[in-house]
Nucleic acid binder design. Structure first.
Length: 163
DNA sequence: AATGACAGTCCCA
DNA sequence: TGGGACTGTCATT
């Protein structure tokens, strides 16, 4: 059975993100690429994907503007059981709040797997909407970020969080 | 199958 | 300030 995904661009004040949809929902969200690459739009899209994309566009722009999204598309990232549990825990962090890698590790029942939590954060396919940027190192240190620390700072700043 | 490298954290010297 | 143990995942060997 073929795996079907659709990639659609999202214009924001920060650049053009790229959203990937599977048949289940939003599977991946890419930060703006250094090289502006054109995305070919399919002539017609399934109704559910159009709806999800509108939700993704609105949610992404809301968060970038520091506002609570009115709604989210179904978030369907692909990953291991451990990664799924970490991503689920991250989604429970309210806007403007943060957790440490250690706190997330405890929440998923693996208090000693702190470092592995960092790995799962880095593997998060849906940054921003799955708020990996709200996970900091101990003592409110900034920690790392796959998309570049500038993005992490930018996203935290939009939520009024300063490290 | 084993090793090394990571978006971490704590402990002990 | 520095080194070791701990943990999940992936690339490399």
């Amino acid at each position: 059975m073929a795996i079907v995904t659709v990639a659609l661009p999202i214009r924001t004040p920060e650049g053009e993100f790229l959203a990937h949809y599977s048949g289940q929902g939003l599977a991946e969200l890419d930060f703006p690429q250094p090289k502006a690459h054109t995305v070919k739009k399919p002539g017609s899209l399934p109704a559910d994907i159009r709806i999800w994309h509108r939700l993704t566009e609105a949610a992404l722009n809301s968060i970038l503007a520091g506002k609570e999204p009115a709604g989210l598309p179904p978030l369907m990232p692909v990953g291991t059981a451990f990664q799924q549990s970490v991503w689920t825990a991250m989604r429970a962090i309210p806007m403007g709040h943060t957790r440490s890698y250690g706190e997330i590790a405890e929440e998923v029942g693996r208090p000693k797997a702190v470092r592995a939590v960092g790995g799962a954060c880095g593997a998060n396919p849906i940054p921003v909407l799955v708020p990996c940027h709200r996970v900091l190192a101990a003592k409110k240190q900034i920690g790392g970020f796959g998309g570049g620390l500038a993005w992490k700072r930018r996203l935290l700043e939009a939520e009024g969080v300063y490290v």
